[in-house]
Amino acid sequence: MQAVRFNPALWFNAGLDWLDERVGIRELVATLLHVVIPRSAHTYYLGGITLFLFGSQAVTGILLSLYYQPTPESAYNSILYIMNELNFGWLIRSVHAWGANLMIIFCILHLLRVVIQGAYKAPREITWMAGMGLLFVTLGFGFTGYLLPWDQRAYWATTVGTEIAAAVPLIGVNIRDFMRGGADVSALTLSRFLGVHMLILPAALIGLLLVHLFIIHQQGLADPHATEEK
């Protein structure tokens, strides 16, 4: 042994050894990463891109939440502040808005890819249903997030959007009033849309995503040229 020098690779390995002794991290990483996929399984990276966009939404959303004020009196002005005064606020909000649209587009493209390649077929039913759940959650994100800027478009889009629920037989009006927190879109609507947007939907998305990814890992990707599963 000569002079002790700073060697990042050695330190990293030492850290891995420390974790490995306690939780078997090397075996876990090997199980997660060292898998093979059929060369003919063209995913076009659509699901992964959707996942990346979710990550981008999480980061930009957390940053927006630092300055956003969720009351009808101050929500609009806090968005004006983010857009006009806060450094790079306009960029963060614009990336969040574009990311929302792109995430829905890539969800739909991913769905079309899976339908066309027949990748939803047995034994991948649970992956498919979790994926449909993820699509519904993503649409829910779009619907609840749209109200938050509290401008004319937000207010009236939410008014007509929640009104659609009222057409459901028997309990339609109850669903509408439950979504709005009353007969009209009000401060209560803003509170519950923000709660759903920032707490319930992220938790639901992460749960469904874990199911989706775990089963893909266990089963491997579908080979589009294979007719039957062995």
């Binding site: 609009y76 857009m83 614009s94 509290w150 401008d151 478009r153 207010y155 009209d184």
Partner: peptide
Amino acid sequence: PAGLEDKANP
């Protein structure tokens, strides 16, 4: 960039 209309007016 993301747009913003007039403040909501019920």
